[in-house]
């Protein structure tokens, strides 16, 4: 199955990529790992006349921890992130990266591509909300930083300007007494998740939840978040009743679209289980338990 014909341009630098994309305008797409874009092009969901290949631009796939901050280059692949020291140090990152599709897709797909496609089924946007990540974006008008929570305007649509590219993703290393968990339910490895949930929390003395961020993926047209659900848990000791109420609140905020992966009711039921499981693992990790997280599929 061939994509429609297109002109190919390989960018050797970020500046070259931006000027090519500016000049080519709406008819061009930026190509990173291609694990979303090439499939769309083969299925003729998209027929760009030009592809600007970013993958050979040096210096855009570094993964580092400097001070209290993690920095991941936008071209880092899912596999590179999963095998990095960042994933060793922050379990929720390993949960997410190690479960994306399969080994082959993880070899090619990039974190920047996952964000830029604005697909609510992609795992990184959901995960990065729980870590309150900031994206560095570079375009013809210069560099700006935006919160990952502000990136997506609507399904498949970001607030990025034409020819503006995400170059790096930064977030704070979670403080001591923190734990997180990300889990997705999939029909099989290569399938997009039916639903996913991420929870990152910090406990103070007496199991008081001093901070929490929760997010749901594949649960609407954008990543689903709920300040209300977080506020139920933030500032008080964690109780079963509180967790139940917060879970119900964020699942009520979801807007799952019925499709071949399940009805709306089924997806809400899956989300409910995933949130409870994620909170449970996050709390146990706060208490120092080592738990290998994974995505669920048969």
């Amino acid at each position: 199955m061939y994509p429609a014909p297109f002109h190919y341009h390989r960018a050797d630098s970020l500046q070259e990529a931006i000027s090519l994309l500016s000049e080519l305008g709406e008819s061009a797409r930026a190509l990173a790992g291609g694990q979303t874009l090439l499939v769309w092009m083969k299925l003729r969901f998209d027929e760009p006349q030009h592809l600007v290949d970013l993958s050979r631009i040096p210096g855009l796939s570094d993964i580092s921890m400097e001070g209290d901050e993690v920095c991941i280059g936008a071209l880092a692949t899912h596999a590179e992130i999963t095998k990095s020291a960042v994933a060793d140090a922050i379990p929720i990152v390993h949960d997410c990266g190690s479960g994306i599709a399969d080994a082959q897709v993880r070899s090619r797909g990039t974190i920047g591509g996952s964000l830029g496609s604005a697909d609510p089924s992609c795992d990184w946007p959901t995960l990065l909300h729980t870590l309150d990540a900031t994206l560095t974006c570079v375009g013809s008008e210069g560099t700006r930083k935006i919160s990952v929570s502000d990136l997506v305007e609507d399904i498949y649509t970001t607030i990025l300007k034409p020819a503006e590219l995400i170059t790096e993703i930064r977030f704070k290393i979670p403080p001591a007494n923190s734990g997180g968990s990300y889990t997705a339910f999939k029909r099989c490895a290569p399938a997009y998740p039916t639903a996913s949930a991420g929870v990152q929390l910090t406990l103070a003395d007496g199991d008081v939840c001093s901070d929490i961020r929760m997010a749901l993926g594949s649960a609407g047209l954008k990543t689903i978040t709920s300040k209300k659900a977080e506020d139920i848990l933030r500032g008080s000791p964690l109780t079963k009743a509180g967790i139940d109420k917060a879970t119900e609140t964020i699942v009520a905020a979801a807007e799952p679209v019925p499709d071949q992966r399940g009805s709306e009711d089924f997806k809400r039921a899956v989300l409910h289980t995933l949130v409870k499981r994620a909170v449970d693992i996050a709390v146990r990790r706060c208490h120092g338990e080592t738990i290998r997280g994974r995505h669920e599929y048969v």
Partner: peptide
């Protein structure tokens, strides 16, 4: 369409689905 893996080859040692790489 990047599902079945029959087209898997190693590119620089990494497994890839060669139907989803130009």
């Amino acid at each position: 369409v990047t599902y079945c893996g029959a087209c898997t080859v190693l590119v620089d040692g990494n497994p890839v689905k060669s139907c989803t790489m130009l």
